[in-house]
């Protein structure tokens, strides 16, 4: 009996093979990276800084802006009040249309 088994011809060339491996590697790596999201909280430093500010809030004797005595003294000593004409001049502004500049 004659042995007539013939191996299937490879339909993929070297370049395609490398491309395929490249894509596969990228997929595996980005998959692995995505999995780290489960363990690593990438917003942790934001939460820690925010906690620092809330800690500062709770430390203060006064926690509402209208209880800032020095601020109220400033309004008194320059003889004006919020949204008065002098306040408009110093503390208010207007906005421009930047799409036409």
């Amino acid at each position: 009996m004659q042995y007539d088994y013939k191996e299937k011809e490879v339909k993929i060339n070297r370049r395609e093979f490398l491309g395929f491996i490249g894509v596969l590697t990228a997929a595996i790596w980005s998959g692995l990276y995505a999995v780290t999201d489960v363990f690593v909280d990438r917003t942790k430093y934001i939460k820690m800084r925010t906690a620092g500010l809330y800690q500062d809030d709770e430390k203060q004797a006064a926690r509402q802006s209208h209880k800032n005595k020095s601020l109220m003294n400033m309004y008194k000593s320059l003889n004006f009040s919020p949204t008065s004409p002098l306040a408009e001049e110093l503390f208010h502004t207007h906005y421009i249309d930047r799409s036409v500049l």
Partner: peptide, 26 residues
Amino acid sequence: NPLAEYTGAGTIFGATGGVMEAALRT
């Protein structure tokens, strides 16, 4: 220093929701 006096409402301006919370308090 009067210009270094601040309240808790002023300091939370630095975090999201802080300006809103400070504005609501007043």
